[in-house]
Amino acid sequence: MRSNHKNTLLKVVILGDGGVGKSCLMNRFVSNQFDEHSFHTIGVEFLNKDIDINGDTYTLQIWDTAGQERFKTLRTPFYRGSDICMLTYAINDKSSFKNLQMWKNEFLYYADIKENNQFPFIVIGNKSDITSEREVSQLELETWCNENGITSSIETSAKNASNVQEAFILAVEHWLRIEKRADKNETVYNDTVDLTKKQGEKSSCCIGSSDEN
């Protein structure tokens, strides 16, 4: 049973061309395993994992999608209601990088998101372990992100586990930043926060009265 302190649930979707290593990233992150001969994903895969950031626990519900074109109609229904979107390419595959734009558009359309610069996208350049075959430079990555108003990007390797944990943390932090900004604007009350406030008021009032006695 989950502890009585409920975690914040975050829905994460991982998008990107078939074979860039989305499934491997997820498996590395969730179960710290790597499969050299992983199969193409059928439709979607799902895993969840808790992650602690600044003392708070977040439960990431990770939807790993199939990148192959023939699965398009199968994966897009899962975009709706996402909190975080990871756009993935492989640094040794230029075309997967070129396709990022397509992935981003597909996501925005099917997730039904209106203000796209408000949404926490994170760009991931996977397979950073095989630098010898690198086709996409870090500069190109930065340029693309700047052009698209995306502030978070990272190069990872599911194979040697570098930056995988960091990528997900980066994503959640990005989400937090945007969430906080939204909070300020809309003053959305979180239940717990709200109640503590009331408690505070009441207790002081009680104490006040008892003091007088």
Binding site: I42, G43, V44, F46, F71, T73, L74
Partner: peptide, 8 residues
């Protein structure tokens, strides 16, 4: 394949 995905 799609049945599986739709069930999910």
């Amino acid at each position: 394949e799609s049945s599986y995905t739709f069930i999910a």
